[in-house]
């Protein structure tokens, strides 16, 4: 546990000291602000709930993109800088490295996600939505972001360079979403299987509508667990290369 805390602290300090995190956060918040005005609120009068639904739709997309971008510096950067040698010659387990790095990136992404809270708050100026709906949507965003980071972690464990890692992470994340499209052209049980694997289209939507379902939570937690487990295995296997 001590080692995990150590990794988390160092990682967070690195996020704060390097410009990449700020740049990604800034661009994402700016994009959310612009689309909130142009798309969620729009020019036509609309229901407050619809504005919130449209906001969460955009925020879900930016969260996935941020998650992919944040994950690039997780393991691939250590490998390309040669700093993983320090970790791997220290008495610290591969799992602790993976969990520590994951938690740090999740904390940072959560802050970026929560910074957009001022946008749904603006709805209260001219309308009314339930706090529960906002809370459910944000919980969904955290799960969506957390699972994207875990997928990105796995991609990062495979790639030798951060740039490759981000491409691979983007590809994995896209593949999961494409499952939804595949589901629409499949039939019978295949359709429901494919549909199940789409985090955004299938498991985020209930959160977005203010609906908290255990099955969605189980999906996200399982995805994170499996991805982190796979990343740990990849790190362990590097000794065999």
């Amino acid at each position: 546990m001590k080692s995990i805390g150590l990794i988390v602290r160092r990682e967070l300090a690195a996020y704060l000291r390097t410009p990449a995190g700020y740049i990604i956060a800034g661009v994402m918040l700016l994009w959310q602000g612009i689309t909130f005005n142009a798309y969620a609120v729009g020019s036509e009068p609309s229901l407050s709930t619809d504005v919130l639904l449209r906001f969460f739709e955009v925020a879900g997309g930016t969260t996935i993109v941020s998650g992919v971008l944040f994950s690039m510096r997780l393991l691939a950067e250590e490998r390309s800088n040669g700093t993983q040698t320090l970790l791997f010659t220290s008495p610290i387990r591969e799992g602790e490295i993976v969990v520590g790095k994951y938690l740090a990136s999740f904390v940072f992404l959560s802050v970026v996600i929560l910074l957009s809270l001022y946008l749904p708050a603006l709805i209260f100026v001219n309308g009314k939505v339930s706090y529960g709906h906002i809370a459910s949507g944000y919980l969904g965003l955290l799960f969506l972001g957390g699972s994207t980071l875990a997928v990105g972690m796995f991609a990062s464990s495979l790639a030798k360079h951060p740039f490759l890692a981000v491409l691979l992470a983007g590809m994995f994340a896209a593949l999961l979403e494409i499952c939804w499209w595949v589901a629409r052209i499949s039939e019978g049980s295949w359709a429901s299987i494919f549909e199940y694997f789409s985090p955004f289209y299938n498991h985020f939507q209930p959160f977005r509508r203010g609906l908290l379902q255990l099955s969605d939570v189980v999906f996200f937690v399982t995805l994170v667990y499996l991805m982190l487990l796979a990343s740990t295995r990849v790190l362990k296997s590097q000794r065999w290369q």
Partner: peptide, 19 residues
């Protein structure tokens, strides 16, 4: 194996804590 953004004292402390 150096983290470029850390200062020397912090880095050596981190290395010690890892051990």
């Amino acid at each position: 194996p150096l983290y470029p953004e850390m200062n020397v004292a912090d880095y050596l402390t981190f290395a010690g804590r890892l051990r």
